[in-house]
């Protein structure tokens, strides 16, 4: 359990959540990136366009 950096709501972590994983806040819908595991630190995930190169 840790807190959403946007709305403060509780966010549940999977037992095997990995650094880099994105969690959706079920309260405000924010995309949160797990940047440290122990103790867990969340930050707002960067906005990234969904397309690639060659």
């Amino acid at each position: 359990m840790t807190e959403c950096v946007e709305c403060g709501a509780d966010v549940t972590l999977h037992d095997n959540a990995e650094v880099g994983e994105i969690l959706d806040c079920t309260t405000c819908g924010a995309e949160l990136e797990l940047v440290e595991r122990n103790p867990p630190v969340l930050q707002r995930a960067p906005e990234l366009e969904e397309d690639w190169g060659e």
Partner: peptide, 23 residues
Amino acid sequence: RKSAVKVVEDGRKKIKRGDHSGK
């Protein structure tokens, strides 16, 4: 440059860094 991309692996969303790609 776009060095980070949002991906789905094993059903989970992740930020993957170190991509050498750009727009």
